[in-house]
Design a binder for these strands. Structure first.
Lengths: 335, 335
DNA sequence: ATGAAAGCGCTAACAC
DNA sequence: GTGTTAGCGCTTTCAT
């Protein structure tokens, strides 16, 4: 049904080469022919076939983004930034939800390869050797988002997790808290788990506050249900704490819910600070103070990096994004 | 860098036609050649070029999904269902976030057309004439998700909003509430706004409960901040209500937060039921009772519908998905 | 069972 | 300023 460049050429009484030149804003035609061709295009409702273009130009104007199962609004925020920047750059986005499953990731990578996408954004998961090797062979640029690689030199966009955790803990300390606990994610997760724990411990030590292992409860992940279960454990281990740093907002929400069930008043009896500043933070009761990551902006930056490489062949530098405390009402000053 | 069918043919000492047959599991070659070719493929790491295939087959194995800005986890749930079914069907998904902006939608539609995607899922927004006409010209199948069209005969997947709202209200009534208010979305939204209001009113009338306009507060949208502002208005208008039906979980969360600020105890002094059963519902304090829509499943169903049309040329029937009350602790029985 | 060749819709090099 | 032609990587007749 849809017409081709041939149809346009025929209708305007020119060759397909001329049509191509005009469609691509090149030079080498008179104003008169241009007008004629444009009219023919209009009349036929001609839209260039991006598939044919992709075949010859070796550029599909499509990029792929991979992400594992994550706290949902975390993903949405990242994604909407990526999507925005991608479309502004005239490309489109193929999303691949890997469910933190290695096999599936390889399948996706293969798919993206067959589709000859222009580049990849790899999100929130460790870039293991197998993936890296495969992507290298694909020969397309790669940007890491909300993750980084210690083994390979791949540009990334993320906040400094250790630093952000330090800031959060320090905030609690400045509010007068001296006995502080942490509900953490997976301590074996070297990207987001461990650094936040390290930042927490550093802050305590730098301020000469007591620290021992009983101050931390670790979990499998960063989810609400992890947080729900962690509060009691933490309180059992360290009954005297007056404040908690939770390594994600969902963890914090879980802790708040658990506190409610236990009859512990937040923030009067216990202060809690979260991490991420998702939209759920403002819905909490009380509204959750949190370390904000600029997720949407991070998504945009990552996508723009990719296009920088793609369009200008530039070597890009990784970006550490700023974090900041978003104050709400879940932390109380302790005199 | 990546090799082509030609390279494989050369390496295996056969013609490209033979390679093509083997790759596509057709007939017309000996086991011996097959083995030879498969080896060559393996050695070269050959992956067929989907772009070239798309050009000749007129099938890109890519579908597009359009959605406006929405309560974020609502989108994620829908999206993950679509994504799952799409990849299981061997296709990929291009996401287009339209921001409820008409102009942008047309641009996306054009883009999807140029990319020659196989089909479209149109989500959660009214299918206006301009879109419908354009998609018709594109000549690709269309499925509506979480929306429907009264003007055109387009298959859709959604719950019966009016019925679901009725169920929610009836639940409140069965819990002994006689004076019930509603915090609604946009009353001019004929897809999700109006039907829920109608369902609410019907339930009241069917049970001989008093109804007047003061019982309902309408909003621009379905957001948390809409809900935050609505509670006081509703209580001012109708001070005697003991229960509220909120037309979305975010609206409900907003109302709960407002109640907290006002010192009103939920559910002891005021019961609240939400709509959607998003993941935030379980994070609320108290956990929010809500009318559940099977969002992920709806996404899967919509995608599968599209593939049904695409692969088997079937005429598909619209699907009304079941809703159900997910009981938590925000509604209290009133004796 | 296998190969040669045409062609999908387009771009770009070359010719005039 | 404009047209002719080769070819991107593949599938599919049509021969053999």
């Amino acid at each position: 049904m849809s017409s081709t460049i041939k149809d346009v050429a025929k209708r305007a009484n020119v060759s397909i080469a001329t049509v191509s030149r005009i469609v691509n804003n090149q030079t080498g035609y008179s104003e008169k022919t241009k007008k004629k061709v444009l009219e023919a295009i209009e009349e036929l409702g001609y839209q260039p076939n991006a598939v044919a273009r992709g075949l010859i130009n070796r550029r599909t104007h499509t990029i792929g983004v991979l992400f594992p199962k994550l706290s949902s609004t975390f993903v949405t925020d990242l994604l909407s930034g990526i999507e925005k920047a991608t479309h502004e750059a005239g490309s489109s986005l193929i999303v691949c939800h890997t469910e933190s499953n290695g096999e599936k990731t390889m399948k996706y990578l293969q798919l993206l390869n067959e589709k000859r996408i222009d580049g990849i954004i790899f999100t929130s998961a460790p870039l293991i050797d197998e993936y890296y090797q495969y992507i290298s062979k694909m020969n397309v640029p790669l940007v890491l988002l909300s993750t980084e690689s210690y083994a390979y030199n791949v540009p990334y966009v993320k906040v400094n997790d250790r630093h952000a955790a330090y800031t959060a803990t320090q905030y609690l300390i400045k509010q007068g808290h001296k006995d502080i606990g942490m509900i953490s994610g997976n301590k074996d997760d070297l990207i987001a788990g461990r650094p936040r724990i390290d930042g927490f411990i550093s802050a305590l030590q730098d301020h000469n506050l007591p620290y021992d292992e009983q101050k931390i409860v670790t979990n499998q992940g960063f989810s609400f249900s992890d947080g729900l279960g962690s509060l009691k454990t933490l309180l059992d281990q360290s009954p005297d704490i007056t404040a908690i740093f939770a390594a994600s907002d969902e963890l914090a929400m879980g802790a708040i819910s658990a506190a409610y069930q236990l009859g512990i008043k937040v923030p009067d009896e216990l202060s809690i600070i979260g991490y991420d500043n998702l939209s759920i933070a403002e819905m909490a009761i009380p509204p959750l103070t949190s370390v904000a990551q600029p997720l949407t902006e991070m998504g945009e930056v990552a996508a723009n990096m990719l296009f920088e490489i793609l369009n200008h062949d530039k070597v890009v530098k990784s970006r550490i994004m700023p974090h900041q405390i978003k104050e709400r009402n879940s932390v109380k000053e302790r005199k």
